[in-house]
C-alpha cells in the first residue's frame, strides 16, 4: 500500500514538472509582457500545488510534511501578489497589452 501511495506521489510530481515546463515554454513563446506574466504565475502556482501534494503523499506524517505545507502557503501568498504588482507596474509605465488586433505587430517583431 505504501509503495502505491509513493508511486501516485511520483506521478503527481512528474505532472507538476510537466506543467512547469509548459509554463516556461509559454513564457518564451507569448507575444507580450502580460500574457507572459499570465503564463508564468499560473503554472508556477499550479506546479507548486501539484508538487506539494505529490511530495506530501511520499512524505506521509513527518515534520517534512508540515514544512511542505508552509512552503505551499508561502508560494500561494507571494507568487500571485508578485505577479499582480508586476502587471500593475508594467501597465503603469505605459506598456499596452497586445489585443487581438492584426494591424498592431506583436512586441517581439516590433
Amino acid at each position: 500500500m505504501a509503495e502505491a501511495i509513493g508511486w501516485i506521489g511520483a506521478v503527481l510530481v512528474i505532472a507538476a514538472v510537466g506543467l512547469s515546463i509548459a509554463g516556461a515554454v509559454g513564457v518564451l513563446r507569448f507575444p507580450d509582457v502580460y500574457t507572459r506574466i499570465h503564463a508564468a504565475s499560473i503554472t508556477d502556482t499550479g506546479a507548486a500545488s501539484l508538487m506539494t501534494l505529490g511530495l506530501l503523499l511520499m512524505a506521509g506524517f513527518s515534520p517534512a510534511a508540515i514544512k511542505l505545507c508552509i512552503v505551499w502557503v508561502f508560494i500561494m501568498l507571494t507568487s500571485p501578489a508578485a505577479a499582480h504588482a508586476l502587471a500593475g507596474a508594467a501597465f503603469g509605465s505605459g506598456h499596452r497589452p497586445v489585443l487581438a488586433d492584426p494591424r498592431q505587430p506583436s512586441e517581439d517583431e516590433a
Binding site: V33, A48, A82
Partner: peptide, 18 residues
Amino acid sequence: TAYDRVLAVNSFGTKTVL
C-alpha cells in the same frame, strides 16, 4: 522590456523553490 527580465528572475526563483 525590463519587466520581462523581472518576470524571468521571479519565475526562476519559484522553480528553484520547487
